[in-house]
Design a protein around this nucleic acid. Sequence first.
DNA 1: CCAAAAGTGTTATGGATACACCCATGC
DNA 2: GCATGGGTGTATCCATAACACTTTTGG
Lengths: 231, 231
Amino acid sequence: MHGIIVNMTLNMAAVTVDLVLLTIRQGALQVLLIRRGIPPYQDRWALPGGFVLDGEDLDAAAVRELREETGLDPQAGHLEQLATYGTPGRDPRGRVVTVAYLALLPDLPAPTAGSDASGAEWRPCDVRDLAFDHDRILADGLERARAKLEYTPLATAFCPPEFTVAQLREVYETVWQTTLDPRNFHRKVTSAEGFVEPTGNTAIRDRGRPAQLYRRGPAALLHPPLLRPSR
Amino acid sequence: MHGIIVNMTLNMAAVTVDLVLLTIRQGALQVLLIRRGIPPYQDRWALPGGFVLDGEDLDAAAVRELREETGLDPQAGHLEQLATYGTPGRDPRGRVVTVAYLALLPDLPAPTAGSDASGAEWRPCDVRDLAFDHDRILADGLERARAKLEYTPLATAFCPPEFTVAQLREVYETVWQTTLDPRNFHRKVTSAEGFVEPTGNTAIRDRGRPAQLYRRGPAALLHPPLLRPSR
DNA sequence: CCAAAAGTGTTATGGATACACCCATGC
DNA sequence: GCATGGGTGTATCCATAACACTTTTGG
């Protein structure tokens, strides 16, 4: 049994979590990035992340990093494991295996308040030339987010606790880079079982008819799904 | 820079890959398991797996383990990363982070031929009480497989190079534990762009009309998808 | 009244289901 | 011919897309 432990030490790696934190700000899908202050990849943008601590679960490490970077609870949005990246040489300092997590978050009222890492910034999600293999991780996260909006109610994770159907539609339009018919969208959303629940309140508007406010419903899957056009 | 390496050593973990190898044998969905010969979990069934070698990519480690266990190329079926499990204490010997892979494989003509691990056996996929957290990993793999049959052509990964529509239907019926209308299934499969291609050959049958043989088509996604009944 | 945005009704279309029916083989 | 499984045609239903239309507000 102890022989196994000795063997293990031959194949050890540092384990990190990296976060793809997505939000919708200024009408665009944005990702939280850190400007690296030290080599390797000094002065380059990178996904926030850090080491998994001794005795810490992977999910817990992701939640901790999320809190440190945004001050948010995962409850306010959505956090899930994305994929794991461990190609030798992905980190020039040695063997580092990183477990990437994807988070969908509402636009923060306090912009990056409580942020541990000064130098964190929301950037449009079409950035390139990130540090390490973070271009690839970001691309995988974006594709996962786009796909999940189809068959889950996770678009609500981008919204504040109360939101209008139009706000929810803007989420879909922003993430998918399309336009959707407001009338048909309204019907689909309000008739999909457990997607949204009316709060009874109405939104105040500059002009036009006030909109009903909704909160996220209990459904985990959308029936029927909302499919991307042109597929 | 070297200071970082020193910090890293505080958070090192052994990294393994574990495989959820699924196939359809004797009309049932089965998973390849190993009977453990040593502690911990001696004499318990476990998913096959092993350490990621020095300088070896995660995917490469999964492919290597697949070859060692089944003698198969991933090309014969389908292999993809499933998820990563690193809860402290999941392995009593120390901190072990495992990257799980999911493979869908045709029924092997040579039963476990070329297998490195004697003691490997195909078992019905409803087994319980596996070693470590392998119950959970297997459950995640099964759910992933069931979901993927809906919107990808991966059911063909369970089939030999040439197969009939009825064989393909049996895959769906076995994985989803339902029955499907043979007539409607035939139409959906043959009309879904790029799902299957006729080879021109026909299958020899004991009785009844001979069936056309097909091979897998080039499509990566099914349009339209094949949805599970009763959702 | 007008503009603007929310929300409803209506029709046409395409996929899914259910099932009647025909086809090709072994016996 | 008969049994058996492969494969096609067709009616009905339901979700969608397109869009005319009504409602509710601010100015």
